[in-house]
Design a protein around this nucleic acid. Structure first.
Lengths: 206, 206
DNA sequence: GTCTATAGCGGGATAGAC
DNA sequence: GTCTATCCCGCTATAGAC
């Protein structure tokens, strides 16, 4: 809708990818229009097809780029060398910061999952091969053995961490409407939430 | 794709709504095709438009029907008269059971939120006017005063409850792929989760 | 109420000049 | 590499017979 990149120093390819990211995230694969992406990039449709054969190709390029951005944020804290209980606040801090800076990503990933699960799964396999998960499993196990935390299934714990940090962003429009918050009140609540939720999880574990 | 309702005793209107629900949930508003809904209902496109003027009208009918199904499940436990700590397992049991029986609902709601936030927000206002939230607030406050639980922001607590129960369903394809689970293993994990997550929250509160 | 047939157009993709 | 012009299919929606 709005031209953004006129006269910038980005390459055309970069302009297209950035514009496509914005539009795909806002409208999803089906809702997005090649025309709108072209307009946003300040070029025409033909040139879009010159760089990316078709819509599907462009979408996949954007999607894998997005997933590759998400994964380091997910991995970073889980595989650090800190004791488990200190990882928790770090996890929420880093993870929620990433989502605040890329607010459309979780919703985008979740929405496109039902359209093309294979694409998403392939993307997330990258984490697995990094060994992040095994490392975290071991840290939990050792922490239990040292009596620092109650026995807990590491898989369920990760699910809890991710659930608690992602969901409130995904449900943002519902929350804002429901609690009658403006943007700054919502932001304040999410900021508060980083602390609240860390303490919540630590209490549950100790 | 598959005819389902031939010779059934449902009214045509019911057939349409049921088929539309299935197709819209699977493909979203943009991805759904009127032809597919017609096929699924065993009628033709023209008849679809006879009952529902256009696609938007049909979609809204399905959507509000869906929201109205979700809300009682959300409200039921929160506003019961049980002590707070007994509400927790009830909440997860009822809420997760609902989602298991209507697995596409959360993803549907989340996906369509970005397309039309107003529609979703209006739907959820029904809870507010039921006074469910105030009742829960009060229950938390009293429980804190009686020293049964640590002080906690009721809003954040609800967010925690909903996050913990909804997210693993929304992210189902990722989880199945990531942990390499088949359908029955996934189901078993979610069953296990009802207990695990109740205990997790109770530990965090006490 | 239910059907067949078709209008009408939005939008992805391509031809071809520069 | 970038443009204008256009094709053409898919899909919503409607006309009109029964």
């Amino acid at each position: 809708m709005v031209k953004k990149d006129e006269g910038s120093s980005e390459s055309t390819q970069e302009k297209i990818l950035n514009s496509a990211r914005v539009v795909f995230m806002a409208k999803g694969m089906d809702g997005a229009r090649m025309q709108e992406i072209a307009d946003h990039a300040g070029i025409n449709k033909a040139l879009l097809h010159y760089y990316f054969r078709d819509k599907e190709t462009l979408f996949k390029a954007v999607f894998s780029q997005t997933i590759l951005k998400l994964i380091p944020a997910l991995s970073e804290v889980l595989s650090s060398d800190k004791p488990l209980l200190e990882k928790i606040p770090d996890f929420f801090s880093v993870h929620m910061k990433f989502i605040q800076e890329n607010p459309m990503v979780p919703q985008f990933v979740i929405s496109e999952m039902s359209r093309n699960p294979g694409l998403v799964i392939t993307g997330f396999m990258a984490i697995k091969h990094g060994g992040v998960f095994e490392k975290f499993n071991k840290a939990v196990q050792e922490s239990v053995e040292r009596g620092e935390i109650k026995p807990v299934d590491p898989t369920q714990l990760i699910l809890n961490l991710v659930s608690l940090s992602i969901f409130p962003f995904v449900a943002k429009p519902i929350l804002k409407g429901f609690f009658n918050m403006d943007e700054s009140q919502y932001g304040q609540m999410m900021e508060e939430r980083k602390k609240v939720v860390s303490q919540f999880v630590i209490n549950a574990l100790k």
